[in-house]
C-alpha cells in the first residue's frame, strides 16, 4: 500500500517545503509548533520501499519531486527496522538517478576494443538474442556421454539474481530453463 493512500498527513503549504509525517498505528504523534522560521527543509517520504542491501528487509520511505529523489530514510512503521537505518541504508539517497556513476545508456564493447560505445536497447537486445541462439544451437546436447536424453546447452551460463525482485527471478528462471541452461548459479552459492 502506498503511503499517500493511507492518509498520511501532509503539512506545509509550499510543495517544496512540505512534510509528510507518519501516522503509525497506535502512535499518533503530536506535532509541536515549529519554532519561528524553521520550516522543515524537505519532505520525508511518500512511498515505501525495502532496502536493497542485506536480507533484513528493512523498510524505507522515499520522497521525490518530479521523479527525482529528495529524501530517503527508514520507514517508522516498519516492524523490523522501526525507522532506523545503518550507514548503508542511510546512504540510499546516493543510489538515486543523480549519482553520475549510475548507468543510463546501453554500453557495448567490441572484440579487442578499448572503449565502451553507447548503443540502443533494440540493437543490443537483438544482438544478445542472436548470440544466445547461435551459442545454444551450436552447443546443443540432446544426449549426454552415457546416452541419456538431456536436451541442454553447456555453453551458455547465467549468474546472479539475489538483488532482483521475486517476479524478476521467476521470469529469469523460466527463461533460462526453457533455453536449456544448466549452468545457472547465483549469490547463494558464494
Amino acid at each position: 500500500m502506498e503511503l499517500s493512500r493511507r492518509g498520511f498527513l501532509k503539512l506545509g503549504a509550499a510543495a517544496t517545503a512540505g512534510i509528510v509525517i507518519f501516522e503509525p498505528l497506535g502512535l499518533k504523534r503530536a506535532l509541536a509548533a515549529p519554532p519561528k522560521g524553521f520550516s522543515v527543509s524537505k519532505r520525508v517520504g511518500e512511498k515505501t520501499t525495502i532496502c536493497p542491501y542485506d536480507a533484513s528487509g528493512c523498510g524505507f520511505v522515499v520522497a521525490a519531486d518530479n521523479g527525482q529523489v529528495i529524501n530517503i530514510e527508514g520507514d517508522p512503521d516498519h516492524p523490523i527496522n522501526r525507522g532506523t537505518a545503518c550507514s548503508k541504508g542511510a546512504s540510499l539517497r546516493q543510489l538515486a538517478a543523480d549519482n553520475p556513476r549510475r548507468l543510463g545508456k546501453v554500453l557495448y564493447r567490441a572484440p579487442g576494443g578499448s572503449e565502451w560505445q553507447e548503443k540502443s536497447w533494440d540493437w543490443a537486445l537483438d544482438q544478445i538474442a542472436r548470440k544466445i541462439k547461435t551459442t545454444r544451437d551450436a552447443s546443443w546436447r540432446e544426449r549426454d556421454d552415457d546416452g541419456y536424453v538431456v536436451n541442454r546447452t553447456e555453453a551458455v551460463a547465467s549468474v546472479g539474481g539475489a538483488s532482483l525482485d521475486n517476479e524478476e527471478c521467476h521470469l529469469l528462471v523460466k527463461m533460462l530453463r526453457s533455453l536449456g541452461l544448466v549452468y545457472v548459479e547465483h549469490q547463494a552459492r558464494i
Binding site: 503539512l11 509525517i21 504523534r29 506535532l31 515549529p34 522543515v40 527508514g74 532506523t84 537505518a85
Partner: peptide, 20 residues
C-alpha cells in the same frame, strides 16, 4: 535538525540508530 524537531520529527541521527 531544528527543522525536524520543530515539526514533530526526531533528529536524523536519533531516528536512524538501529540499536537505539
Amino acid at each position: 535538525c531544528i527543522d525536524r524537531i520543530g515539526n514533530g520529527l526526531e533528529p536524523a541521527c536519533a531516528k536512524t540508530c538501529p540499536p537505539g
